[in-house]
Computed example of a mutant assay.
Amino acid sequence: MLKQERADHVLQTLDHLYPETPIPLDHRDPFTLLVAVVLSAQCTDKKVNEITPALFAVGGTPETMAAMGQAAIYEIIRPLGLSKQKSKSLANLSRIILDQHDSHVPEDWDALEALPGVGHKTASVVMAQAFGVPAFPVDTHIHRLAQRWGLASGKNVVDTEKSLKKLFPRDHWNRLHLQIIFYGREFCTARGCDGTVCEMCRSLYPKRKKPVQLKKP
Score class of each variant (00 low, 15 high):
1 M>D: 01
5 E>M: 00
5 E>S: 00
6 R>W: 00
6 R>A: 00
8 D>M: 01
10 V>L: 15
11 L>R: 12
13 T>S: 11
13 T>E: 13
13 T>D: 07
21 T>P: 01
24 P>H: 12
24 P>D: 12
25 L>T: 10
25 L>S: 10
28 R>F: 13
34 L>M: 13
36 A>G: 06
37 V>E: 00
38 V>P: 00
40 S>C: 15
41 A>C: 00
42 Q>C: 00
43 C>L: 03
43 C>Q: 05
44 T>E: 03
46 K>Q: 11
47 K>Q: 11
47 K>A: 14
50 E>T: 06
51 I>L: 10
53 P>D: 08
53 P>C: 06
55 L>E: 13
55 L>H: 14
55 L>F: 12
56 F>K: 09
56 F>Y: 11
58 V>Y: 06
58 V>Q: 11
59 G>D: 09
60 G>C: 11
61 T>E: 04
63 E>V: 14
64 T>Y: 05
65 M>K: 12
66 A>Y: 09
66 A>H: 10
68 M>C: 07
69 G>I: 04
71 A>V: 08
71 A>C: 00
71 A>M: 06
72 A>P: 01
72 A>D: 06
74 Y>Q: 01
75 E>P: 04
78 R>M: 04
83 S>L: 06
83 S>D: 04
86 K>G: 02
87 S>K: 10
89 S>G: 04
90 L>M: 15
90 L>W: 12
91 A>Y: 13
95 R>H: 06
96 I>R: 01
100 Q>I: 01
100 Q>S: 09
102 D>F: 03
107 E>Q: 15
107 E>M: 13
107 E>D: 07
107 E>N: 12
108 D>T: 04
108 D>W: 02
109 W>V: 03
111 A>W: 01
115 L>A: 04
118 V>Q: 05
119 G>Q: 05
123 A>P: 08
126 V>W: 13
128 A>M: 07
129 Q>T: 09
130 A>C: 03
131 F>G: 03
131 F>M: 06
133 V>A: 14
135 A>V: 05
135 A>W: 11
137 P>A: 08
140 T>F: 09
141 H>E: 11
145 L>E: 13
146 A>Y: 12
147 Q>W: 08
148 R>A: 05
149 W>E: 06
149 W>F: 13
152 A>C: 07
154 G>W: 12
154 G>I: 07
155 K>M: 12
156 N>G: 05
160 T>N: 03
171 D>F: 15
172 H>V: 02
172 H>E: 15
174 N>M: 14
174 N>S: 14
180 I>G: 03
180 I>W: 10
184 G>M: 13
184 G>Y: 14
185 R>T: 02
185 R>E: 04
186 E>V: 02
188 C>Y: 10
189 T>K: 13
191 R>C: 03
192 G>K: 02
193 C>E: 10
194 D>L: 06
196 T>G: 08
196 T>Q: 07
198 C>G: 05
199 E>M: 10
199 E>A: 12
204 L>I: 15
208 R>F: 02
208 R>N: 02
209 K>D: 02
209 K>A: 00
211 P>W: 10
211 P>H: 07
213 Q>M: 14
215 K>Y: 11
215 K>D: 03
